[in-house]
């Protein structure tokens, strides 16, 4: 997962929305673990569009 930190508000909306509990918000940095199934939900709901899939 790619994060544009210049946009990210550290709001945790992606963390709470991820069904897989695959995201952790730590010291203003988002960590994604292996349980991510690339469902794109976090990308869809991020209020500022800070997320995308790697390579897209």
């Amino acid at each position: 997962m790619k994060v544009v930190y210049e946009k990210c508000l550290h709001c945790g909306c992606c963390v709470g929305s991820c069904k897989q509990n695959a995201i952790y918000l730590n010291d203003y940095v988002l960590e994604f673990n292996d349980s991510c199934n690339k469902c794109r939900r976090c990308i869809k709901i991020c209020p500022v569009g800070a997320l995308s899939l790697e390579g897209e």
Binding site: C13, G16, S17
Partner: peptide, 10 residues
């Protein structure tokens, strides 16, 4: 965890 319809992004 929530259904997508049961959450609002703000």
């Amino acid at each position: 965890s929530l259904e997508l319809k049961d959450l609002d992004t703000c």
